[in-house]
Structures are given as structure tokens and as C-alpha cells.
Write a protein that binds this DNA or RNA. Sequence first.
DNA 1: TAAACTTAGTTACGTAAAGTAATCAATTTA
DNA 2: TAAATTGATTACTTTACGTAACTAAGTTTA
Lengths: 110, 110
Amino acid sequence: MTQPTICPKFEKAISLLSQRWMALVIYQLLLGTQRFSEIQSSIGISGKVLSDRLKELEHLDIVKREVIPQTPVLIEYSLTEKGHSMEPILRTIENWSQDWVNPESKVSAD
Amino acid sequence: MTQPTICPKFEKAISLLSQRWMALVIYQLLLGTQRFSEIQSSIGISGKVLSDRLKELEHLDIVKREVIPQTPVLIEYSLTEKGHSMEPILRTIENWSQDWVNPESKVSAD
DNA sequence: TAAACTTAGTTACGTAAAGTAATCAATTTA
DNA sequence: TAAATTGATTACTTTACGTAACTAAGTTTA
């Protein structure tokens, strides 16, 4: 028994990044400030889930939400300092994928 | 429109790591060869999902499965070269989590 | 011989998360 | 007044996950 007990901070980071679309939303915002519909069309996420994810990212101080009172109202999303601090994670995954991922075969087992 | 189109290899890596428990299973195997029940108790995953994840990881050549014909039969799981090549990803997440994650607050929004 | 134990894995069933599409609210334009 | 636009929500369906009981094969115990 005596399982090594995984670090709670690490476990929390993993549970964040394991949520579907989470990493892609952050990755997309690394390109700069974007609006709701831009993120939506660039990664193909549904409005419902994007709304959920952005709320959680805002809550975690990873994403900043700014209302631009124009015609019609615009809402701009951008990364906070904490959000930008995640760039190495995304880059490491990006680099690994270039070396090791075969885009042909399926991810799921047959 | 003309969305930037995310790299398929990157997208596939993300969809792999976005599956629940996937990263933790690999992280656990970075410690060395382990048996089914060891992985299960160390990260608290159900037998059903662990079975699914190990099958997929084996299919993707990230995990190697070895049958030890003993009494009762033992099955050892270990990382392949491709599996070990993912270590930097896990370490980067680990490092980030130490600097930025507050283990007190919830991951999900209230 | 038969019951009980061990390890790896599966099956059935219930719950939770995600996808789809229609709709809403606010504002401007035709 | 009606249409269009942007961000967001609601109702409903589908998929993923969790729980717990169970199977299979061999071994020890009674």
C-alpha cells in the first residue's frame, strides 16, 4: 500500500488541462487577444462549452475578460500573466507532437 | 473566416492528453514498471477506465504490456521509448504547477 | 473434491459531461 | 417593425466516466 501520493498542485494542474478544449483555448489565446466567436470558429468548440471554459479560466485568473461597449458589444479575451506562464507547457506538447505523433492513425483504440 | 487551422499532430497530442487519467497514468509509469493494481491504487482510477486507457496507450505504442506467467499471473506495464519521450511534457506541467497552482481553491468555477 | 484467494479484466447500470440546435438580450440598421 | 450581429443560455441527445458485481485461471486450504 503506502501509495506515493501525487502532489496536489500537480494533480490540480492535470485536472485543469485534462478538461476537453481547455488547452486549445489557452493555445489559441497565445496568439493574442480574441473574441468569443473567433475562438469558437478557430478550434471548433460549441458556444456552450466555450462559455463554460472561459468562465473557469477567468475564475482561475488565467484569462481576462474585457467588455468593449461598441455596436454590438464586443468582448475581448486575453491571457493574464498566469495564462502566459503556461506557454512552455503548450510548446512542450507542440514539440513532442511534431516528433512523435502520427496524424494518420486514430487516437482511440479500434 | 480563414481560421488558422491548428496543426493536426498537435491537436492529436492534445486530445490524447485531454482524456481523463491519461497523463496521470503516464506520469505514474515514469516511476518505472508497474502492475495493474499498483497503478490503480496509486492514482485512484477505476479498473474499467484504467483497462481502457492502458489498451489505448498500448495501441499508440506509449505503453508496453508484459505477461509474467506466475502464480497468479502478473502483468507488467512500462513505458516504451515513445512513452519516455513524453517525460518533458509531464515535467513542464509539474514545474508550472509548483509555481502557479493554489491547491486550496477549486478548479471548477462556483 | 470443493471452497476460498489472488490478479487482471469485463459487464451492467447509473450519473455526469459534452455536442447540437434553437433561443435570448441588447443594439443598430433597413 | 423586422432583420442582423455578438455573446451567451436552455432543452435535449449522445458520449464518457464511476461503481460495484462478476469472470477466468491458477493455488492454496479444508
